[in-house]
Amino acid sequence: MKYQSKRKALILLEDGTIFYGKSVGDREGTAFGEVCFNTGMTGYQEIFTDPSYYGQLMVATNAHIGNYGTKIAENESGGVKIAGLIVKNFSYTYSRPDADHSLEEFLEANNLFAISDVDTRALVSYIRDNGAMNAVISTRVNDLEGLRKELKEVPNMEGLELASSVSTKEPYFEGDPDAAIKIAALDIGIKKNILRNLAKRGAYIQVFPHDTSYETMEAWNPDGYFISNGPGDPQPLEAAIAAARKIIAADKPLFGICLGHQVIALANGVSTFKMHHGHRGINHPVKNLVTGKGEITSQNHGFAVNREEAEGNADLEVTHLHLNDGTVAGLRMKNKPVFSVQYHPEASPGPHDAEYLFDQFFELINAEVGKDAVV
């Protein structure tokens, strides 16, 4: 191990509960955010760089983190998006031959504070029982009163708009400019692997900032629209919801993932709510109600769609359900080329059971393009 000694550190939850650990490396640091946990055995780099995790302190339930290092090509965005990291055993050395850096070097380059030697089993059990809440991780173990005061100033995730913090500031393009299909993607926290999945199926994508209007995107004359994943509460995303309503009214093909799924629900008058502790991991069971088949999925969300309202909406059909708690995992509109899922069909990390959803999106687009050609 690189360091012979590590600084004492703690996790202070907003309800006053304290867990102890040590800093990763000989570093002083403090980080605030909503504490949550991910149950994935692999894929820590993709998790840390997923914009959907912006503003969250990530607890890794896997006992060993860092053992295969990091590789720049596996980033899901331009850099680390989590607010801080909490682990049991941190691996300072790594064994993967084609890794670019150790996880320690990666975190230092991204200025991320992390703590290890935490009883993560006890911490995760506590979150499961008491719900996700704001917390602070810090080496200021002798300044509890100061940390408590600062923690009280951290805004609650409910009602918090975070898409603007992770969205692109300017439009950009992805894919082959000569591709037959053009897709306008509204970036409210998009992952790179979503764009790769769209591009490899023959799409040229223009990615737009989070508050782009339908009229601005439509001026590019796309064949279909996509609304991405992202962090925070969907309800404050008024511009994205308004754009979704206009896309729907114009009968354009529309696909939404995660936060985009929630935006589409809100555009249809269906409310969303903050979950007790959310779904985060790569082994979540979902049932496709259309085919009757089960899927193992990658999920990352702390908000969900109101099932009773969705099932009572004459324009919507619930297509997928999460088998652990019966929450809505997929929707489609009955008379519009519009559908969405709460989970991540692009995975990264995770299983590929749900990649067919990208194919369904292209089938929708091709059907609408063919319909326009006939007319």
Rank of each mutant, 00 (worst) to 15 (best):
L144P: 00
L144R: 05
G146D: 01
G146F: 03
K149E: 10
K149S: 14
K152P: 11
K152F: 07
E153T: 14
V154D: 00
P155S: 01
N156D: 15
N156G: 07
M157C: 12
M157F: 13
M157N: 13
M157K: 11
E158R: 10
G159P: 03
L160K: 04
E161A: 08
E161Y: 01
L162F: 01
A163S: 14
S164P: 02
V166Q: 03
S167V: 04
T168L: 13
K169R: 12
E170H: 06
E170V: 11
Y172P: 12
E174I: 12
G175T: 07
G175M: 01
D176M: 04
D176R: 09
D176F: 01
D176V: 05
D178H: 12
D178V: 13
D178A: 15
A179M: 02
I181E: 11
K182G: 06
K182C: 04
I183F: 14
A184R: 02
A184H: 09
A184T: 03
A184N: 09
A185V: 08
I188D: 07
G189V: 00
G189Y: 01
I190W: 02
I190F: 02
I190S: 08
K191V: 13
K192F: 13
N193K: 13
N193E: 15
L195Y: 01
L195W: 00
L195C: 04
L198H: 00
A199K: 05
K200L: 11
R201F: 09
G202L: 01
G202R: 02
A203H: 05
I205L: 03
Q206G: 12
V207A: 09
T212N: 06
S213V: 06
S213H: 05
Y214Q: 00
Y214L: 03
T216F: 08
T216D: 10
M217C: 02
A219D: 12
W220S: 15
N221V: 05
N221C: 06
N221A: 15
D223A: 04
G224D: 00
Y225N: 08
F226M: 11
I227V: 06
S228A: 14
N229F: 03
G230W: 02
P231M: 05
G232K: 00
Q235V: 15
P236S: 08
P236E: 04
L237C: 11
E238K: 13
E238A: 15
A239G: 11
I241F: 03
R245F: 05
I247F: 09
I247W: 10
I247H: 11
A249T: 05
A249F: 10
D251P: 03
K252L: 04
K252I: 04
P253G: 11
P253R: 10
I257R: 04
I257Y: 06
I257P: 09
C258E: 01
L259M: 08
G260C: 07
G260M: 07
